Simulated scan of single mutants.
Amino acid sequence: MSPRIPKRMAGCPVHGGLALPQVAARHTNDRRPPLFGINHPGRVNNLLAGRGCGGCGQPLSRRAGGKYTLLLRPADFTRGYSAEPALHPSDCARYAIEACPLLNGRMTSYRSTRRDLEAERCGQPDCDCRLWANSDDHEARAGASASPVYAAVFRQEDYRLRWGDVREHRDVLLGVALSGIEPLSIRLVTKGDPSVLDFTRALLMNLPLT
């Protein structure tokens, strides 16, 4: 049975009983299936810069005492930022953990065949899928064991962006900064099937593995 969709995500498209997060790639034509697990770069950047939730797309809390959640792999901690937008802790983050098979433990590895994003293009002139391109990250994850994932909760006052250089591009928006920020809490969401590298990263960052 699919988990209950939170009220905050009531406006999200639903496919196969699951609400599609705002970051997910999708076609303009709703009859074509969305790409769960594949993020839309434009939506990601807009949500990061606008302090929007990656689940529902609504603004994150800015009130005193407000919080946000990041779902993080060991590699995110060591590089010092999350490339994915933050989530509302009480509902959107909880729903993501319950709905995603890599987060709820139903899958311990990524799909064995790489998803060919260029082959997913629908050819409609008003659909930005014409810009979808395969990445080294997608290639590397195909068939790989799933990393441990942590839910880290932060104060809204600590939200800041991380910028950096990517190949020949300068001052690229990389994600939500982690370096130098103390989380309120860190919880292991799923153990995954950690590689030696992930295990080492977790040890270096003093992350729980159970």
Rank of each mutant, 00 (worst) to 15 (best):
D128Q: 09
A142Y: 07
S145Y: 10
S112V: 01
L102G: 05
C100T: 10
E118I: 02
G123T: 03
W132T: 02
L103D: 05
A144V: 05
D128N: 09
M107P: 05
S112M: 01
S135P: 01
L117I: 09
T108S: 08
L102S: 05
C129S: 00
R106E: 15
L117F: 13
R121G: 11
N134Y: 05
E120D: 10
S109R: 15
E120G: 01
L131G: 06
R115L: 15
M107C: 13
R130G: 13
M107K: 15
D116C: 07
E118G: 04
A133W: 02
R114M: 00
C129Y: 00
Y110W: 15
P125K: 13
D137N: 06
L131Y: 13
Q124V: 07
C129F: 00
N134V: 01
C127N: 05
G105R: 01
D137C: 01
M107F: 14
D128P: 07
S109K: 15
A133E: 08
C127R: 04
A140Y: 03
D136V: 06
L131A: 13
D137L: 06
A119H: 13
Q124F: 10
L103H: 09
D137G: 03
Y110T: 10
G105Q: 03
S135E: 07
R141W: 11
R106F: 06
R115V: 15
E120K: 04
R115Q: 15
T108C: 02
Y110M: 12
C129L: 00
D136W: 06
M107V: 07
G105A: 04
C122A: 00
E139F: 01
L131S: 11
A133H: 07
T113M: 04
G123C: 04
S109Y: 13
C127A: 06
N134E: 04
C100G: 10
A140W: 03
D116R: 07
C100M: 08
